[in-house]
């Protein structure tokens, strides 16, 4: 379990780092290569989670797809090398807020067995367990 946790953390941090690098660099070719590395790290993460078929499939498919994407970048971009220092972004504040709200766990996310404070999710009054076994929350 510990080895798997270390492998998941390693490949996960690599995927997050390269994924952030996609939008941090000005060179579009570097962006495509960073995305390729992020997808390869995801393949490693799948292998660490013992999904061998999906891991190898991810490595093969995304390797091809991101290489294609790099070629299209060079074909279509006005400044693929990022040497012209062009501004290629807009509505940054909205995007940053949306990204943060998409990634950040909501308050009470650790509630439940083994988690932090508060009752377990299935014990909350707002939680209903449907006859077919799925839980649903009204709040």
């Amino acid at each position: 379990m510990t080895g798997q946790l270390i492998a998941v953390a390693f490949f996960g941090l690599a995927a997050i780092g390269f994924g952030a690098g996609v939008f941090l660099t000005r060179s579009m070719v570097r962006s495509a290569l960073a995305l390729l590395a992020a997808m390869a790290a995801l393949g490693g993460l799948f292998l660490a989670l013992e999904a061998e078929f999906l891991g190898v499939l991810q490595l093969m498919m995304m390797g091809t797809e991101m290489t294609l994407m790099a070629i299209f970048m060079v074909m279509f971009m006005m400044d693929p090398g990022g040497l012209g220092q062009m501004e290629m972004t807009h509505q940054k504040r909205t995007a940053r807020a949306a990204g943060r709200s998409g990634a950040w766990p909501r308050p009470g996310w650790r509630s439940g067995p083994g988690g932090g404070g508060g009752p377990a999710l299935h014990q909350r009054p707002s939680c209903r367990i449907a006859p077919w076994g799925w839980r649903s929350w009204s709040a």
Binding site: V8, G12, L13, A15, I16, G19, A20, V22, F23, M28, S31, A38, L42, L45, M69, F72, M73, F76, M77, M88, T89, H90, Q91, K92, T94, A95, R96, A98, G99, R100, S101, G102, A103, W104, P105
Partner: peptide, 22 residues
Amino acid sequence: LVGAALFGIGLYGALSQTNLVM
């Protein structure tokens, strides 16, 4: 946590970039 972080980074990129490929 890795999945949530990747989703947030992707959402930021999809909303902030002006180029179709980005």
